[in-house]
Simulated assay, not measured.
Amino acid sequence: MRENRSPAGRTGGAIDPPLVVPTTHESTRAQYYCGQTVYVPELGDVVITEEHIMQAEMLKITVGQLLDIEPMSPLREEEIKQKYVRGQPLVETEEVKNLPTRMYELHGWYMKITKISNRESLMVQVEEDHYFNKKALSVEYSELFRLFNQDALDKSIVSCYCMMKMYETKKAGRYGIGFIDPNTVNEYTWKLEWCRQDVEKCMLEFLKRLNSNEDILLPYNFDFHWILLDIKVDEGKVEVLDSLLKKDSDYNIVKGIVDRAWAKYIKVTTGKWRQKLCWYRPKDLKQAPGTEVCAYYVCENIRMMASERSRSDRQDWFKEVRDQLLPTERIRALQEEIAGFLLDQVIDPKGEYYYPLPPHEPLVIVLRRHQGNM
């Protein structure tokens, strides 16, 4: 008799039933399990993995709703999204104790600071050698809420992630990767007429100052979505890493910004340069439809390039995971990384990015002053 084996390695006379998440949508009454192939508009046939099932369970929805092949109930979207309230826990109260170490510590700091201060944001010191412009970067406390809940991340958090990798690579003596500030070069700022010229001037300046690097990374935000551009100056190429299936025309604005800066760069910089940049889009990690974790995919690509693997290893890794979702554990690891950076390098007075502020003004004084003006 042929022996049956479960995925966990147990043996027995019967095959273990597949992992199933039943739907609550009455019109389909479908069931989803690992290994099942379903058709998803714009993606084609998708094989359901444990990662799909884990994300659906975390969001308290069905796999069909996660993949956008079943509609969400009108109230469901509001039910699964907790709203930010200043001074309240950043996650459900019962989940606080389950937070990993650095997120737990950052959560404790946030709860304390909102009790003793009227401030609404965390300030980050940006020096000249970080983004070639000394300034203060503001990370609003509401962005910490988004970070803790795997919601869409703002430019300030992604900018912090880049600075964290700058610090790591410099400390480890690893060179060859430069970063363009996503707070400076992004579609929202470029669309402001009085900022457009400054954005393109900054893009040129970044190319001139970072041209000794093999890879210049630009996390770029447009239409509430994040992509990562890897500009290879010596090769005259731009690699577009996008976790969604966007049309080439969706990149027209950023392509124009970079191409115009490149045209000026090759005129003012000595060397043999390709006259026109070659743009291409390799296979990349894909995010589940309906999720807002594109910034985490950008950060994961940055981590792969800056911290974890050599170029050849990275290409092999992409080949292995090109059709997979980013595992939940890796998203959690990114959250922990960012929390640790904010604690050690921004909040700690000895940190590289600590921004000195006046002593905290007790909230009770602020409230009394406000009441006195009423």
Rank of each mutant, 00 (worst) to 15 (best):
C34V: 14
Q36L: 14
A306Q: 09
V240H: 00
L66I: 04
V321F: 00
W226G: 02
R119F: 04
K171C: 09
A152H: 12
S73A: 13
Y188E: 14
S117Q: 08
M72V: 11
G271M: 06
G236F: 12
F145N: 07
K267P: 01
F222T: 01
P74E: 07
D234I: 09
L153R: 00
N133P: 00
L285G: 00
Y355I: 00
N301G: 00
E193L: 10
E42V: 03
G256S: 12
V346D: 01
T28R: 06
W279C: 04
K267N: 10
C202G: 01
E337P: 02
Y84D: 01
M166C: 05
I302Q: 02
W190V: 06
D181K: 06
E200Y: 06
A56M: 08
K247W: 05
A136Q: 03
I227H: 08
I157V: 15
P74W: 04
I177G: 03
V366K: 11
R303V: 01
L229N: 04
E214Y: 12
R86W: 12
M72K: 08
V185D: 01
T270W: 05
N301Y: 12
L244Y: 15
Y39F: 12
W194F: 07
H130E: 05
E79T: 12
I216V: 15
G12W: 06
P356V: 05
N4L: 13
E26L: 14
I61L: 09
T11N: 04
I69R: 04
A152Y: 07
N186C: 13
T269E: 14
S159M: 07
M58G: 03
D198T: 11
V321H: 00
P359W: 13
